[in-house]
Design a protein around this nucleic acid. Structure first.
Length: 373
DNA sequence: GTGGGGCACCTATTTACTTCA
DNA sequence: TTTGAAGTAAATAGGTGCCCC
């Protein structure tokens, strides 16, 4: 009995396991479609499901996200209808607990591309792919943005807030979140930022500055990220325009955001795999124990494994006990529908099987049946 | 078919900034 | 109030794959 743990290519099964063509094709298709998958195999045969290549292009990822829900069924069941020659195996095909990105249904915000469903690539909308009337709507701000904006009570507050931290020289942002939150006075903060920027300019320093985005900018980018985790250049440009950021900043933000998401998802996946591994280890230990018990039983009574066992069954009509004869060396039951091995029961039903020499009648006589002649 | 340039993205790392004890 | 460690996130650098010419 072996335990295999695979994170990776679906086309490369475990070394000790065999994989038939159907399984290989299914796994390849699943992994290509869904991205990251995992497989833990315990037993004598299995297949593996893996990530396959690194997601080929981010462009296709958006489509993948939409299919996430559908993928769950396919990968977790792994129907493997033509199992390999009745080999026994236990397999867990694991999917990440949560999709990396979830689509957010009705938008609270009017995002640059929320209405054109990412079709701005074709340039049909003219304004950088944005319908003119569907750009950022200051009346539908996130809560945080509205708080700040209402304090200012100036027309078009959102735009003003984004611009407030602009540094005059390079268009970057200045000021600190802490200062901003403490004072709540963005005008003062803007003056500070402006002053710092001018100090740098006066000193001839063009040093790189860490420029925190404001809450509002981050919130808006987050919303955009939920909609499209990889915006196209036009969308990035539109976002940068609306947030008074440089396109490069928007691009970097999305890159870092994707990296953070991936990191978090990896942590979740590792935790999940860890738990699965513990479960399988425990199951393995239990099966070993049962095997030892069976061997001990066989040693103490050599007739036990050689003769068919008798299973006690209850007649539903008359509630009388009947016996049927089975062989204890039969392979584990295989599901007709899926071709996969049936789930391992929690405990082998020892009380219902007995050796043949047990003093019960071999052929039960049912009261409704005529006695065998 | 092949190679080079451009572009976008990923990953690892650096660094500016924030938070907290 | 100050300070330093730890954490966070913006920014950079290098590498890779894809597309076009």
């Amino acid at each position: 009995m072996e335990l295999g743990l695979s994170l990776g290519d679906a086309t490369k099964p475990f070394g000790f396991l065999k994989e038939n063509n159907t399984q290989k094709q299914q796994n390849a298709a699943i992994s290509k479609k869904s991205g990251l998958d995992f497989c833990i195999a315990l037993g004598l045969s299995s297949s593996t499901v893996g990530d396959g290549d690194r997601e080929k292009t981010q462009r296709s990822q958006e489509d993948d996200d939409e299919d996430d829900d559908d993928d769950d069924d396919q990968s977790s069941e792994g129907d493997g209808s033509d199992d390999t020659q009745g080999e026994t195996h236990l397999q867990l095909n694991l999917r990440p607990l949560a999709p990396v990105h979830r689509r957010v249904s009705p938008r609270l915000l009017s995002l640059p591309w929320s209405s054109d469903n990412g079709s701005s690539e074709n340039g049909s909308s003219g304004n950088m792919g944005l319908p003119a009337a569907k750009g950022f709507d200051v009346n539908r701000l996130p809560a945080a943005a509205e708080e700040v904006s209402s304090a200012n009570s100036v027309g078009s507050p959102f735009q003003r807030d984004f611009g407030m931290y602009r540094r005059p020289g390079n268009g970057n942002l200045g000021g600190s979140k802490r200062d901003f939150e403490a004072t709540g006075n963005d005008v003062v903060e803007a003056e500070r930022a402006s002053s710092r920027a001018s100090d740098d300019d006066e000193n001839g320093l063009n040093t790189r500055k860490k420029l925190r985005l404001t809450k509002e900018q981050s919130a808006f980018l987050e919303e955009s990220f939920k909609e499209h985790n990889t915006p196209n250049p036009k969308q990035k440009l539109a976002l940068a325009k609306q947030l008074n950021l440089r396109p490069r900043q928007v691009e970097v933000w999305f890159q870092n955001r994707r990296a953070r998401t991936k990191l978090k998802q990896t942590e979740v996946d590792c935790e999940y795999l860890k738990r699965c591994c513990e479960t399988l280890t425990e199951e393995n230990r239990r099966l070993h124990k049962e095997l030892q018990e069976l061997r001990a039983l066989k040693t103490s009574n050599p007739f036990y494994m050689q003769s068919p066992a008798t299973t006690l069954t209850m007649c539903p009509s008359c509630e009388r006990v009947a016996t049927t004869t089975t062989t204890t060396t039969a392979p584990p039951p295989v599901s007709a529908a899926s071709g996969k091995m049936a789930p391992i029961p929690k405990a082998i039903p020892f009380p219902l099987t007995r050796p043949r020499f047990f003093p019960f009648p071999q052929t039960p006589t049912h009261p409704n049946q005529p006695a065998a002649s």
